[in-house]
Simulated assay, not measured.
Amino acid sequence: MAIENDLVRICSVGELPAEGAVHEFPAGKKMLCIAKLNGVISALDNECSHHGGPLGQGMIENGKVICPWHAYAFDLTTGLCDDDADERVRVFEVTVSGDDVLVKL
């Protein structure tokens, strides 16, 4: 459901993944990988740019989300890949408003 200016509610604060974990959430017609590390919520395209693996089913290691299919590592803030400079996933702006976690698509 769009709130305003392309902001989409993805979950409540209580539904966020645990600290140091990732989870998949729908956002409109997209699926996003939502991560929480050091209290910061990150939202990335859920589809690994390497071979389409589901990043939200991966894990966090050294500030990167690790794709469960081929272990490609993507930075939570930039979306850049450690393993291949040509690979990158889109990162989305996250806002918390009250109990709602919103992502700008």
Rank of each mutant, 00 (worst) to 15 (best):
T77H: 12
K30F: 14
S49M: 00
V65C: 08
N46H: 07
D82G: 11
G56K: 03
I60S: 04
N38I: 08
C81L: 02
H50F: 04
T77C: 13
I34H: 07
T78N: 04
S42H: 15
S49N: 03
G58Y: 01
L37N: 10
M31Q: 15
L32I: 06
E47F: 13
I60N: 04
C48P: 03
K30P: 10
E47T: 15
A21I: 05
A18F: 14
M59R: 14
I66D: 09
V40D: 08
D45R: 02
K64T: 11
C81D: 04
E61V: 07
S42F: 12
G58D: 03
C67V: 09
V65W: 02
L76V: 13
M59I: 08
G79E: 06
G56D: 04
C67I: 08
S42A: 13
G28Q: 12
A18S: 15
E61Y: 02
F25I: 10
P54N: 12
N38M: 08
G79T: 01
V22C: 11
N38C: 10
C81S: 00
C48E: 03
D45C: 05
C48V: 09
I34G: 05
I41C: 07
F74E: 05
A71V: 06
A73N: 10
N38Y: 07
L37D: 08
G56M: 02
G39K: 09
G63R: 12
D82F: 10
H23G: 15
G63F: 06
E24N: 11
G39M: 06
I34W: 07
E61K: 11
H50A: 02
F25D: 02
A21P: 10
E47I: 15
K64G: 08
D45N: 10
G20A: 06
W69M: 09
C48N: 08
G52A: 04
G20K: 07
L55N: 03
V40R: 11
Q57S: 10
G28F: 09
